[in-house]
Nucleic acid binder design. Sequence first.
DNA 1: CATGAATGAGGGTTCATTCAT
DNA 2: GATGAATGAACCCTCATTCAT
Lengths: 220, 220, 220, 220
Amino acid sequence: MFVTFAPVKNVIIMISKEENILFAAEKLFAEKGFDATSTREISTAANVNVSMISYYFGSKEQLLENLFEYRMKESTSFMKEIVAKQNLNEWEKLIMVVNRYIDRVEQLKEFYRVMQTEQITNKNPRINEILKRSKLGFIGGYNELLNKGFENKVFTKKPKVELAHATIIGTVFYAFNGLKMYREYSGNKSSEEAYKTEYFNDLRQHIKQILKDLLGYEEK
Amino acid sequence: MFVTFAPVKNVIIMISKEENILFAAEKLFAEKGFDATSTREISTAANVNVSMISYYFGSKEQLLENLFEYRMKESTSFMKEIVAKQNLNEWEKLIMVVNRYIDRVEQLKEFYRVMQTEQITNKNPRINEILKRSKLGFIGGYNELLNKGFENKVFTKKPKVELAHATIIGTVFYAFNGLKMYREYSGNKSSEEAYKTEYFNDLRQHIKQILKDLLGYEEK
Amino acid sequence: MFVTFAPVKNVIIMISKEENILFAAEKLFAEKGFDATSTREISTAANVNVSMISYYFGSKEQLLENLFEYRMKESTSFMKEIVAKQNLNEWEKLIMVVNRYIDRVEQLKEFYRVMQTEQITNKNPRINEILKRSKLGFIGGYNELLNKGFENKVFTKKPKVELAHATIIGTVFYAFNGLKMYREYSGNKSSEEAYKTEYFNDLRQHIKQILKDLLGYEEK
Amino acid sequence: MFVTFAPVKNVIIMISKEENILFAAEKLFAEKGFDATSTREISTAANVNVSMISYYFGSKEQLLENLFEYRMKESTSFMKEIVAKQNLNEWEKLIMVVNRYIDRVEQLKEFYRVMQTEQITNKNPRINEILKRSKLGFIGGYNELLNKGFENKVFTKKPKVELAHATIIGTVFYAFNGLKMYREYSGNKSSEEAYKTEYFNDLRQHIKQILKDLLGYEEK
DNA sequence: CATGAATGAGGGTTCATTCAT
DNA sequence: GATGAATGAACCCTCATTCAT
């Protein structure tokens, strides 16, 4: 059964019952954590019967796995896509990757909260596999960009790719997690939306600056 | 009542029942998460009766709060201590703070895993308060170091302190979380211990490098 | 799902699982009191799983509330019904109410034991509300009967309705509660059933006598 | 160990720890019921350690038994005392008993609340024994008064003593239990204290009236 | 294909009592 | 004689999942 949403720019978005459950679960997992979220809460939020979770996904655990598969499917592709791009140098590609990543985390911030906790207490082997694949995809992509950029003399330094990745992803997540608190600290009086926009612009610049230094890139 | 452990270098370590529970809980919370850990598991691991958790701490939730208080009490002090130090310039102090922080995360890696998840799904207001105090302590300390260093012409740039902090802490945590996976990726064949030592040395150098660039610090 | 009981005089009595629990609980609450009765005892007596109590009623407390609602729904109606009766004078109506009340207490003696204790330690506001409604229903009914009877010169006295009510209900309950002991005291050798029949006849006569005197009613 | 209270009219009241616990328990049992009252609550209210309850009384159950023994010891005596009185006729004695009883219930209303519930769910055989002794004492006393009064032509009727007793005690208790609610019903605006005084005066008159009728007593 | 009534296991917590001091 | 730390049992309730329909 499908729920038909209002057409957006001539596109009719169809959300299946499965997706409905998936999104409701994602939100709740982000807010309370996986274990603190009950199947009843999910089913209530998704407006379906409790038994549908087991019916569609097999179990609550498998629902989480499906969520990761669902979100990661869209995710891992863009790195390859950008790396393969013509008529851009490695610096431009790198910055494009970082920006796309930040966009994505901003857009799917609930999923990424779930992902972070799952990364820390890595209990589920299926999810570990998915995360590993994603991480290795990123590291592999960065590696290619860094090496090619060095060969092509776009970059003059060769930092450890794992650490560079840790810095990018770590900075992004901690900037996100700390957003609310940093705003309090700064005493900024502008609207939350305005503060966020400025904050993320600064974040992008900040990471750009770090990468420039790490890679020895000179803007012409 | 106290359990006497084997003397280590002429020091007899005394662990009270409370601490016993606290440490057992810390380990389990790190491995499985707070909600997935049952009081019965904790009591079994701590070799005490289940009811002792309520008896000593009031509830499972308050046990977690006590853990935070316990660990944070030791933690927050070192920033102030270092900032206040004489005969060190701001760069030396900054690096000392970072190294101490990495030491600490290495030493209490289980607690920091708990802390990270708690930071993401910030449900408990008491813990939020503790985390906030800690974070603001760090940011305040960094702020002072960065400003004074700039005044004293040790540093030539003035980066946003929140973002600098996000980078330091984010890099450290993601380097830690990714350790196992990075090792697999690098195909390094040396012992786990040896790899770790090298990895953390690299991490320290990496962060040092980033800070040098961010602050415009020139080693003499 | 329904359990079909043996047909009684061509009437098939159907008891739902909810009612099964309700009746089992009523019996146990009467015997041991609410707090001394565990949900496990109730579920065992009702031949259902423990979780069914929460499933059907929400909680043990709400089970008690439901019991009151269930029993009171049938109860409160008969007063109005009798007061509204045509071709009976107020004295006849009054005696009919008292007799119906005694019948009811006899029939639902277990519930009324629960009710008495709940009336004393009135902790549950929902139950208080139900009890109050019932009590006021009775007092209101008595008030109407007494006033009309006085107007119509059936009665020649106007006693305080609250105290008259306290006497009726108090006498009934204490006669019930003391039944066993009074039998011992009287040394009556007849069968329990025979003693009870005689005892309740006496009780009815006793209350009738008191009311006659209190109201100044003269039998023609 | 004794706590010395302020002297009242040159009398120093000494409350032992045991009595302290007894009175604290009595209050709590009246408010919440025996089973809903925890030993910890009692010990907190009595300002003693939890273990003192078991230490002094053996168990919580035995604490209740002791409470009954304590309160009943003072109670049962007055009936005999009054019956034995010279220079009063049986009617005067009867009314004296009733008034003393109401005084007592008023004074020890908390204990009588406990007693009522214990009377309904008569689980404890020791307490049953105490209650039975008390009840039989009353019935025996009433019996003597009624018989002698009839012989002496003070009374002209011979009602069943058990039912007369049920009416007296039942009316008193239900008047007490319903006090608060009756006040609401009557819409009486006078102070609670004033209402109570009037209410209990009415109650005494009411019972006197009933007894007069039941016994065929003619005031001269 | 989808449902919801029903389940058993396990959750955290509180209980009255004990026992070493 | 008096204490309080400590206990095991039991408390009510919620959990994810199943299965008859």
